[in-house]
Design a protein around this nucleic acid. Structure first.
Lengths: 206, 206, 206, 206
DNA sequence: GATGAATGAGGGTTCATTCAT
DNA sequence: AATGAATGAACCCTCATTCAT
């Protein structure tokens, strides 16, 4: 009947709708089966449990975005190490990172919606926090660099760093969860960059 | 047996622990009864349903913090209207509001934890969003004032306002949810105020 | 506060509404108490249990209507025994009985509604059947008389008698349960009498 | 284990006994499971809820009897329209209908018992009334015919028609609920026909 | 690849009633 | 005459998952 892996795809599609609509916990495996026109046995042939089903919708994207952030952190590291780097270059790079992040997010809209707002109860319920942690390393690097340049009169506490990472992460995440289009989001990303830069300058002032 | 209304208190205490540990949805009425050494009937004598039990832990605080914000917004309105008001006065007031908010939050730590992170599924699941909305009105008022003074070359979009309200609200909320002590939080609140002010200045620049 | 027996009256009134609306089984003692502004303890001071509460609304009427029927049966007995009784007299008496029944029913509308349609689960759930049984005795007497006069060529089976008692009883009961006014009901009672008489004549025919 | 769909049958059988004994509302799903030697989950695999279980015992019969009545009404319509139809033919047809009804009822005894006396609380609680309504249409048709033939000196009120439909329906229904055998019931059906015809003649008299 | 019957613990909630005060 | 806290069994139903076929 040409079913082959078609069943799997159908299950994934239906599951995505259910998870998006109800969230991980309230979504029902039985209802997913029913809507996909498939028996529970079939579902459990393809996916070992509820979490595995959710992961199948989300894993690839979750892994890749983390890699993207890590890569960016590494790349920034080299920029900082370059003696000839100007402040403008750093800012420009930050803006570019924002654009990349937003673009990737929007290219994988559904997966990000699941990860950011519908994963409660699943093994991805801490995805957002993990993102923040990665962002934090990014920011810490920046701070170290700044401190070298400007001296350490202004002590920035660890918590502050964590909070700023939150600020940045959630600012980007909200673009998607609040329903902006990609075009709107890219424009807004610039505003975010501007605002956060202004904030930094203020707290770094002596 | 010295029970009197002691049972109700015991139920509330146990329920608070359960909700804090598991969240509204995963908390079990039966488990709460068992831990409180009480039959289900007793619980349902005091509280009409699960949501009512949750509300009993949270309603007062939820109502009051909203009033506090509203009152502050009104007070700020009068400050803006005063011709002799200086920018310093406005900033000082913002800082004071932050202190008030944080202090009240910490004085009602458990209730705020429930409201901010454990209310999903209950009638308070939108509490955080409501807070943001109130904050937004606050910020909008500020923007109107600024626009009058500095002209309107820089158009701030509605979404930006909403985002900033989020930024501020979550910044305060996280102080609690991340486990800072009151002393740490109050210090951090100043950092937040500084940072957010810097951000504002940046995006208001021509 | 002048409460005295006022509480009892209030409970009875509220209970009547509840039973009428929901029926005996679905009515809730707690809700009755709440609506009456009284605690359960108070209710159980006046009425020993749910059935007792229902009975208090209904007993008097239930007893009296039975007596009325019995009395009528006895009175009819004497009519039959009277050698000078004409068939017209018998029919006239039957019509009068109908009128009495209907009038009494309407004078105690609520109680009859409870007894006829809302008593399921209570000790009065067989009230209607008891009424039928009493009616049946009435009808049997009539049959005996008829048989003496006209001979016994037409055998009327016991079940037929029971059925006819049902017919008559339900015909009257429905006047009330279908919402006719007293005036309409009295008119309709004549139609019933006519119809039932016609039926009798038909099955008594040789 | 030879279970196959045997479980479903066993559940239906047990449920039928429970419903017959206790009625829809007082019957307990748990008890039905226990008696059938099955877990609640199994029951809910076959039937979506209590009402669905009841319906499975009753739906087919409920639908068919209504169709039978409707069909008969249509057939009677053609009889009336036939110029050569004699009053005897009409009466004969009425009697035949009675026989058909009773025969079908007894062929589905349990289902009818459930529908007529045990359905309270289920979606079939108005089944009897629906039957009466169908019967009423039947009777109205008859009245229209009669009126054409005999003139309209005797006004029969709408309520009277409704009442007569009740009379007829309950007369048939009681044959079953009062425990008559099929043979007894068929004989009694003739008595009913006779009686009701006599009643009609009486109220149609000028 | 897929079926579908079955598990069994658990969910929140309602109930009539009791009894010490 | 009345309070109101407390009982505890029972209610219908949902869940993710398993496994013989």
């Amino acid at each position: 009947m040409g079913n082959e892996t078609e069943t799997r795809e159908r299950l994934l599609e239906v599951a995505k709708q259910e998870f998006l609509e109800l969230g991980y916990e309230k979504a029902s495996m039985r209802k997913i089966c029913k809507k996909a026109g498939v028996t529970t046995g079939a579902l459990y042939f393809f996916f070992k449990d509820k979490n595995d089903l959710f992961a199948a919708l989300v894993k690839e994207v979750a892994d890749e975005i983390k890699m993207i952030i890590v890569h960016h952190t590494q790349k920034e590291q080299t920029i900082y190490e370059d003696a000839k780097t100007t402040p403008q270059a750093i800012i420009a790079d930050g803006i570019e990172q924002g654009r990349d992040f937003v673009t990737y997010m929007y290219a994988n809209k559904d997966a990000f919606m699941l990860l950011l707002t519908k994963a409660n109860g699943s093994s991805y319920e801490n995805f957002y926090d993990e993102l923040v942690d990665l962002m934090e390393k990014n920011t810490l690097q920046f701070l170290d660099h700044i401190t070298l340049e400007y001296g350490k009169e202004n002590e920035i506490k660890p918590y502050t760093m964590h909070w700023l990472a939150h600020l940045e992460t959630s600012s980007f995440a909200q673009l998607l969860t609040h329903g902006l289009t990609l075009e709107e989001a890219l424009i807004q990303a610039e505003v975010i960059a501007k605002y956060l830069t202004g904030g930094w300058l203020e707290i770094l002032k002596k």
